[in-house]
Amino acid sequence: MSDNTTAQETVTPIKAAVMDQLPSAAIQGQSPLHHADLDSLAQQGPKTGGVHLREHKLLCHLTLRCNQGDEAQKAAVERVLGLALPLSPLTSVEKGDYSIRWLSPDEWLILAPGLEAFDIETKFRTEMPGHYSLVNSSGGSTVLELSGENAIDVLKRSVSVDLHASVFPIGKVVSTTFAKSTAILRRKGDHTFELIIRRSFADYIWLWLQDTSREFGLVIDA
């Protein structure tokens, strides 16, 4: 990496509309699984089982598309997020509440605390040079964490990728088919996986997860 990454000249900023999409805290957002009332299930449901499910709802989801060969852009990402863009296919980086997932050679998914979308977008628009796009997709997906001894058994019934630790280590991320829908799947621990699913398919995947985990026992974690 060049040790001289300061922007040489002012690049014409892309004239993109950035919008603070969140209302005041008085208005409670509804995650794609709001109707499933996971909080009540967490309180009233079983406390032991082979599969644990937790929704990380209402987070900030940003899709970044830029040039992985552009040093200035990579430096800008690091300035904004404090994380370097993962360049190897199917890898991710994580630091505190911030994480970046490689989705394609020119596409990454950034997760951050829910209230920070507008802040981060604004910073990007100031810091990031050149041709890129940044899209807030927070309302379009939700994050599920699947853990427990049998989490992998549920996933083997849902995705066709090889989940063996030797080929799917912690930190690996794949976009893949999930049952008859799709998901972005990342391994967070030996028995812990993260699923990012699309809003409109969330109910289908929720039904699917209940069905596939029934024999192992499903615990909803708050």
Partner: peptide
Amino acid sequence: AGVPARVFRISFTGELSFEINVQANYGMH
């Protein structure tokens, strides 16, 4: 209704119309 929105004055009915777009987490609200 307190939620930031992009509103489009376009019409598929031929009537005065407003298409309100809000982040889906606030659609129901």
